[in-house]
Simulated assay, not measured.
Amino acid sequence: MRITSKGQVTIPQHVRKKLGLLPHTEVEFVVEGNVAYLKKAKESNRRGKALVEKMRGRATVKMTTDEIMALTRGEH
């Protein structure tokens, strides 16, 4: 396996399949001495949390939670 000039490497399909590494899966590297290990990140929903934090407080419609829930349920 060769590292590209951008520091990228392709994870072989059999390795991705065995580890369940789907597209957009968060991974992390653990370095112990001269060995690096690749593993799934412990918190795989970081992207979702970051998105929620970015959107927090940006609503332009003043509705209560009960009003929003009634609207999504089709209640009048």
Rank of each mutant, 00 (worst) to 15 (best):
residue 16 R to S: 08
residue 16 R to K: 08
residue 16 R to A: 07
residue 16 R to Q: 01
residue 17 K to R: 15
residue 18 K to W: 01
residue 18 K to T: 05
residue 18 K to C: 01
residue 19 L to D: 10
residue 19 L to F: 13
residue 19 L to W: 10
residue 20 G to Q: 12
residue 20 G to T: 14
residue 20 G to E: 14
residue 21 L to Y: 15
residue 21 L to T: 10
residue 22 L to P: 09
residue 22 L to D: 13
residue 23 P to D: 08
residue 23 P to I: 10
residue 23 P to L: 03
residue 23 P to Y: 04
residue 24 H to L: 09
residue 24 H to E: 14
residue 24 H to C: 05
residue 25 T to V: 09
residue 25 T to M: 09
residue 25 T to Q: 12
residue 25 T to Y: 00
residue 25 T to G: 02
residue 26 E to N: 11
residue 27 V to R: 04
residue 27 V to F: 08
residue 27 V to P: 03
residue 27 V to Y: 03
residue 28 E to T: 03
residue 28 E to D: 01
residue 29 F to A: 03
residue 30 V to A: 11
residue 30 V to S: 10
residue 32 E to G: 02
residue 32 E to C: 05
residue 32 E to P: 02
residue 33 G to L: 02
residue 33 G to N: 09
residue 33 G to C: 13
residue 34 N to L: 12
residue 34 N to T: 12
residue 35 V to M: 06
residue 35 V to P: 04
residue 36 A to T: 14
residue 36 A to V: 15
residue 36 A to S: 01
residue 36 A to D: 02
residue 36 A to L: 10
residue 37 Y to N: 03
residue 37 Y to F: 14
residue 38 L to D: 05
residue 38 L to Q: 14
residue 38 L to G: 12
residue 38 L to C: 07
residue 38 L to Y: 03
residue 38 L to H: 03
residue 40 K to R: 14
residue 40 K to T: 10
residue 41 A to C: 07
residue 41 A to E: 13
residue 42 K to I: 04
residue 42 K to L: 14
residue 42 K to N: 15
residue 43 E to V: 08
residue 44 S to L: 15
residue 44 S to N: 12
residue 45 N to R: 09
residue 46 R to P: 05
residue 47 R to Y: 15
residue 47 R to N: 07
residue 47 R to Q: 06
residue 49 K to I: 09
residue 50 A to K: 13
residue 50 A to T: 06
residue 50 A to F: 07
residue 50 A to Y: 03
residue 51 L to D: 10
residue 51 L to K: 13
residue 51 L to G: 11
residue 52 V to H: 02
residue 52 V to W: 04
residue 52 V to S: 13
residue 53 E to F: 00
residue 54 K to N: 13
residue 54 K to Y: 13
residue 55 M to F: 11
residue 55 M to L: 15
residue 55 M to A: 14
residue 56 R to K: 14
residue 56 R to T: 11
residue 57 G to L: 01
residue 58 R to V: 11
residue 58 R to Q: 11
residue 58 R to Y: 08
residue 59 A to M: 03
residue 59 A to G: 11
residue 59 A to V: 02
residue 60 T to S: 15
residue 61 V to D: 07
residue 61 V to Y: 05
residue 62 K to D: 11
residue 62 K to W: 01
residue 63 M to C: 06
residue 63 M to I: 01
residue 63 M to P: 00
residue 64 T to G: 07
residue 64 T to W: 01
residue 64 T to C: 06
residue 65 T to G: 09
residue 65 T to H: 08
residue 65 T to N: 07
residue 66 D to G: 09
residue 66 D to Q: 05
residue 67 E to L: 00
residue 67 E to Y: 08
residue 67 E to N: 01
residue 67 E to H: 05
residue 67 E to C: 00
residue 68 I to R: 11
residue 69 M to R: 12
residue 69 M to W: 12
residue 70 A to D: 14
residue 70 A to Y: 04
residue 71 L to H: 02
residue 72 T to E: 12
residue 72 T to N: 15
residue 72 T to H: 05
residue 73 R to Y: 01
residue 73 R to H: 10
residue 74 G to Y: 00
residue 74 G to Q: 07
residue 75 E to I: 10
residue 75 E to S: 09
residue 75 E to K: 11
residue 76 H to Q: 06
